[in-house]
Computed example of a mutant assay.
Amino acid sequence: MQAAALLNLLQFASPALPIGAYSYSQGLEAALENGAVRDADSARAWIVRHLHEVVAQWEAPITWRLMQAWSRRDWHAVAEWSEKFIASRDSSEFRAETIQMGYSLTKLVAELDIADADMLAQLQGKPEVGLPTAFSCAVAALGIPHQEALLAMLFAWAENQVLVCVKSVPLGQVAGQRMLLSLRAELEAAARYAQTVSDDDMCNWAPGLSLLSMQHEVQYSRLYRS
């Protein structure tokens, strides 16, 4: 991996990217509220199940397909997978999350002038942009290798989940880093699966998570927006 591509990847996968990822827990705060997550062991179990049963089954494969579509300039495929992802957000919080971060990243891509005119027109021409679409556009525009970008996307997701646990379980900082380190094999397995799963085998079926998200919408006390 060339140094320029690595530096681009580190910047666009960083939690410091100003798109608001830190303000979302993706249902984890609701799981903390109802006691499903209560300590380090249950937190790790939650993250692993969410990774393999939700993210690796749908979000990561779609991101993989979008990166390839942007690189091929296959605008039909970009539109198709973008629409499918937004349609799959089955609670108002999950939908608002991806659209808000997608909007913020689209604006950032334009302001940093990293995409050419055709790519930018495709990105800005959509009525709603999900985060995977905007992230994949940035990956293609900056020439970041897809495998590394997918791993970075998964790591950033896991890091955010761990940070929620550090703040809210609560876990100590060292315990959080130990948990993140222990997830490396799980993240690699999820990335491999996302690259090989067929379109017909992709799945967004996670009714328990959807119910938690809906409960979070009316949760009395909360720190996160999802």
Rank of each mutant, 00 (worst) to 15 (best):
A30C: 05
L32M: 09
E33C: 03
E33P: 00
N34K: 14
N34T: 12
N34Q: 14
G35F: 07
G35A: 10
A36S: 15
A36G: 09
A36C: 09
V37G: 10
R38H: 15
D39A: 10
D39I: 13
A40F: 07
A40V: 06
D41I: 04
D41G: 10
D41Y: 03
A43D: 01
A43N: 01
R44G: 08
A45I: 11
W46C: 12
W46E: 07
I47E: 00
L51N: 07
L51Y: 03
L51R: 02
H52F: 02
E53T: 06
V55H: 10
V55R: 08
A56P: 05
Q57P: 01
E59K: 02
P61N: 05
P61G: 02
I62M: 08
T63H: 01
W64S: 00
R65F: 02
L66F: 02
M67C: 13
M67E: 03
Q68M: 01
A69F: 00
A69M: 04
W70K: 11
W70C: 07
S71W: 01
R72N: 08
W75F: 11
W75Y: 13
A77D: 12
V78M: 00
E80T: 10
E83T: 11
I86Q: 08
I86S: 06
A87T: 10
A87K: 14
S88C: 07
S88W: 04
R89M: 15
R89F: 00
D90I: 04
S92A: 09
E93F: 07
E93D: 15
F94C: 02
T98R: 06
T98Q: 11
T98V: 15
I99N: 07
I99D: 05
I99H: 04
I99S: 12
Q100R: 15
M101S: 10
M101G: 03
G102R: 04
G102W: 00
G102K: 01
Y103K: 15
Y103I: 00
Y103R: 14
Y103H: 13
Y103M: 06
L105N: 02
V109C: 05
A110E: 15
L112I: 02
I114K: 11
A115G: 07
D118R: 13
D118G: 09
M119H: 10
L120E: 13
L120D: 14
L120H: 11
A121C: 11
A121Q: 15
Q122W: 04
L123I: 13
L123E: 00
Q124G: 06
Q124S: 11
G125C: 12
L131Q: 11
L131D: 06
T133K: 06
A134E: 03
F135G: 01
F135L: 10
F135R: 04
F135Y: 15
F135W: 06
V139K: 08
G143P: 00
I144N: 06
I144K: 08
I144E: 07
P145T: 12
H146K: 14
H146M: 14
Q147R: 15
Q147K: 12
E148R: 13
A149I: 07
A149P: 05
A149W: 03
L151C: 09
L151H: 14
